[in-house]
Design a protein around this nucleic acid. Sequence first.
DNA 1: TTTTATAACTTGTATTTACAAGTTGTGTTT
DNA 2: AAACACAACTTGTAAATACAAGTTATAAAA
Lengths: 235, 235
Amino acid sequence: MDTIPQYRKLYEILRKHIVKGVYKEGDLLPSENELCAAYEMTRPTVRHALETLVKDGLILKKQGKGSIVRKPSQNIGILSISGTASAVGVRYLKTEILQKPIVQTWPGDFEFELSELEQESGCIYMERLRYVEDEPVFYDINHLPNIFLPRITQRSFENKSLFEILRKNYQIEVLGGEQKLKAVKPTVKIRQLLHLKPGQPVLYMERKLYTNKENFNIYSTIYFNSEKHAIFGSF
Amino acid sequence: MDTIPQYRKLYEILRKHIVKGVYKEGDLLPSENELCAAYEMTRPTVRHALETLVKDGLILKKQGKGSIVRKPSQNIGILSISGTASAVGVRYLKTEILQKPIVQTWPGDFEFELSELEQESGCIYMERLRYVEDEPVFYDINHLPNIFLPRITQRSFENKSLFEILRKNYQIEVLGGEQKLKAVKPTVKIRQLLHLKPGQPVLYMERKLYTNKENFNIYSTIYFNSEKHAIFGSF
DNA sequence: TTTTATAACTTGTATTTACAAGTTGTGTTT
DNA sequence: AAACACAACTTGTAAATACAAGTTATAAAA
């Protein structure tokens, strides 16, 4: 699988165009037949690319009409956040590394089930704090298995996405995952980290992300300050 | 569109088999070619059905291996809940109607934007309380536009899914949606309804669900008691 | 002017065919 | 017995083709 499929190439091109604003919200993408001609593909291939965009929530298809571009929302990893007060996009996204990636054994009371290979390999551990408009909103604890990742503990993660590093340097891509959500009372540590007001609850998330490498899953525990922002998702 | 597509039929059949336990977790579905032969379809059609199952999180495809059945989780509408204490499935799901569907005008301070047609039609309003193992966990407030729904206020909703009634009686199907999640302090009313302990926060959700009918969106506000259960999702 | 029909688009569904690529068991060879 | 090669599966990608069904603009008819 060293060659990238055609439908994937078209998907990447259109995705880039949408997020960069070549097509704006409400615009129609070129029709399937036009895309066929432009990129020299057949319709099934073009449709495969468009279906992937639909799955990502970037476009919306209408029979007889066309492919409509949807409003892209700001993402942190594969999570979207949206301001609750206004429709204004989320700005000034900053990442602070609280714990640089280090090699550890898996925690004894780890919430997730691990495969044997994951268990044996040990884990890489890191903590981050994310800021929106200079306010901390997002504290995440990440565990990855210590395989396929030479020299990762030497890398700089400041203002870089973990996913980006995994994709570009290690050819690891996130394909899907599962998550569990709860509203909880914060511990003292969490309240201080997220500058929470007294009595303000936090959104707690546990997620397991599947990748293209077998036995390589990313495990995250996330605390989210939902006072001024909300987790946003479309499906 | 009065005839159901073939890929949809196969999807419904396989879905039923999976949720009824004909195939258990970890089982392999019949291969694509076997399904072709069994249901007299071609492979692209079969693959279309399987892709839909993947999207639903019911199966997982592996090149060279087959289609692996995943653990189905209990759903309320299109939301899944999972017990936090154990892997035991969620039992004893009960629905109580707090407010039978009535015709109203849209609330003045409605959180969502409405299309003109929706605004003009007025809305149907209902409130429900859902129980898991005889404990209230789920309070939802629903607004639907008052179109396409003759005699809906006369229908009984006890222990029936709103989605099921919409699908079977009005040919309305939910295709997707968007949602916003927060952790909030409950009001006194919510605390009483959900039997919340003092200081226990609630998971708050706003969702807009798109359907196959234009201008017919379902708007829900949901309060979820996440003390013993969690919202579960796969993607 | 308004209504109606139609033509020219759009996406949706489906068939048929072909080969690539990953997985697994079965042999044969060492 | 162990290692290797291969055949027989599996799903993944892709082409060429056809018709159905929904949308929209245009032209003809009332």
